[in-house]
Simulated scan of single mutants.
Amino acid sequence: MENKQTAGYLVSDVHKKIKAAFEAFDYESNNTVDVREIGTIIYSLGCFPTQKDLHDFIAEVEEDHSGYIQLNRFLPAMAKVLLENRFPPIAEDLLLQAFEVLDKEKKGHLEPEELMRYMTQEGEPFTQEEMDEMLTALADPETNYIYYKDLISQLTIDPNI
């Protein structure tokens, strides 16, 4: 009996987190978000799908290619993703190594132009809008540098929690 109660609380907590993340982007308060916000919502929940995984997830929850996603379709699909730990975050040490590779001069930070170049020209390129959002969120407001060692804990989740 205790396991069912524990599982029930876990699902309830997961649903609350998902709903809160979704509602942050439900600008018209009608249980609907623009499909372009789904990646940000998923990332905010500590999940890091590939672009293909993200595209597949959107195809699963978007109705009739409308460009919008309803909470009642998103919530169960996202709960399943979270409970199965389907898109786990990258380990802190690997993320630090990746930043250190980009920081060729070992300055301890990246300049916005550097990060922009890497993120738009390598791998799965980010759009200008995604880069603007990222730089606004990550750059130090005083220096405009991205101090990656300070950010790693924000970009990863401690697996022991």
Rank of each mutant, 00 (worst) to 15 (best):
K4I: 04
K4R: 08
Q5F: 09
Q5C: 05
Q5H: 10
A7L: 06
A7C: 00
S12Q: 15
H15F: 09
I18C: 08
K19A: 07
F22Y: 12
F22H: 11
F22M: 11
F22G: 08
E23W: 10
D26F: 11
Y27M: 12
E28R: 14
N30G: 04
V33L: 13
T40Q: 11
L45E: 01
F48I: 02
F48T: 05
F48L: 04
P49M: 03
D53Q: 15
H55R: 13
H55P: 00
A59H: 08
A59V: 09
E60V: 03
Y68M: 12
F74Q: 06
L75I: 02
A79T: 15
K80Y: 05
V81E: 02
L82R: 01
L82M: 14
E84L: 08
F87Y: 15
F87V: 01
P88E: 04
P89V: 06
I90Q: 09
L95H: 00
F99Y: 10
E100K: 13
K104W: 04
L110T: 05
E113A: 14
L115M: 08
L115I: 04
Y118L: 06
Q121A: 10
E122N: 11
G123V: 04
G123M: 03
G123K: 04
T127I: 03
T127K: 07
T127L: 01
E130N: 06
E133H: 07
L135P: 00
L138P: 00
D140W: 06
T143P: 08
I146L: 09
Y148E: 02
D150M: 09
S153E: 07
I157M: 09
I157V: 12
P159A: 03
